[in-house]
Structure formats: C-alpha cells, structure tokens
Amino acid sequence: MNNIGEEFKLRVHSNRWGHYDNYTLKKTENGWLVITMKIHGAESDKHGSPGIESAFGGESISYPNDLGYFLSDIWDASETKSKEEVQSYFDALGEWISTTEKTKPNFGALHI
C-alpha cells in the first residue's frame, strides 16, 4: 500500500483571493508532483521542494517554516497508511497552513 501515483488534495486559504484553493500532490517514487491551476506538474522531493515554494510564493501564501518536514513525514507514512489516512494528514496540514495565512498581519495600508 505505498500509494505511488495517488493524488492528495491540500486545501489552503488565500488572503490574496479571499477563498480556499486546492493544490494536488501526487506521490511519486522520490517525492511529490505538485499540481495547481498554474503549475501542471512540478517534480518535487519528499519535502515538496521546489514545487510547494513555487506554488505558494506565486500566490503570496504564508506557510509554516517547517512545512517540508511534515510533507516528508506524510510521504513516509503513506508507505504503510491507506489513501484515506494520508488524505486526513493533508486535511490537517491544510488547516495549519490556512491558519498561518489567515493570521498574518496586513500592512497593506502602510504601503510596506
């Protein structure tokens, strides 16, 4: 049950657009394939690099500094867990990223 080739959804809030966006991470032999509306497949390592940084950077989404370690842990866990269990990890991760994004300060009025 190694989940190679399975796609998982990562639902993340975007302050820039004011709604949730879905990111797809497809498990590969060596990491993740990150798929978004703008990125049709960025080969990434187990930490999601460089695909996640590119996807979130392009949308100005703030995310926890140690996100890559959690993505790597999920990759490792997906070797023995069911697709449903792995998806639940991504659901929790999406909530955490969304909380980070929603609580970042807005200095737009200061023109910083």
Rank of each mutant, 00 (worst) to 15 (best):
M1C: 05
M1H: 06
M1N: 07
N2M: 06
N2Q: 11
N3P: 06
N3T: 07
I4T: 11
G5W: 07
E6F: 11
E7C: 12
F8C: 07
F8D: 12
K9F: 08
K9R: 14
L10K: 07
R11E: 13
R11P: 10
R11K: 15
V12R: 07
V12C: 08
V12H: 09
H13L: 14
H13D: 06
S14K: 12
S14H: 04
N15Y: 11
R16M: 15
G18N: 09
G18Q: 12
H19W: 10
H19S: 14
Y20D: 14
D21A: 12
L25Q: 04
L25E: 01
K26N: 05
K26W: 00
G31Y: 05
W32C: 07
L33I: 03
L33C: 09
V34L: 13
I35H: 01
M37Q: 13
M37N: 13
M37L: 12
K38F: 09
H40W: 05
H40E: 04
G41T: 01
G41Q: 01
A42V: 06
E43L: 12
S44F: 06
D45T: 00
K46T: 09
K46G: 01
H47E: 10
H47D: 04
G48P: 03
G48L: 03
S49I: 03
P50E: 02
P50W: 02
I52M: 12
E53K: 12
S54A: 06
S54F: 07
A55K: 01
F56I: 04
G57H: 06
G57F: 05
G58T: 03
E59H: 10
S60G: 07
S60N: 14
S60R: 13
S60T: 08
S62T: 06
S62Q: 09
Y63G: 00
P64Y: 00
N65G: 00
D66H: 06
D66R: 08
G68K: 05
G68N: 00
L71D: 06
L71R: 05
S72K: 15
S72H: 12
W75Q: 05
D76E: 15
A77K: 15
A77M: 15
S78N: 10
S78P: 08
T80W: 04
K81Q: 15
S82R: 03
K83A: 15
E85I: 07
E85W: 09
V86Q: 10
V86S: 14
Q87H: 12
Q87N: 08
S88F: 10
S88N: 15
Y89Q: 15
Y89V: 10
F90D: 11
A92E: 15
G94D: 02
W96F: 13
S98K: 13
S98H: 04
T100K: 13
T103E: 13
K104S: 05
K104G: 00
F107T: 04
I112S: 13
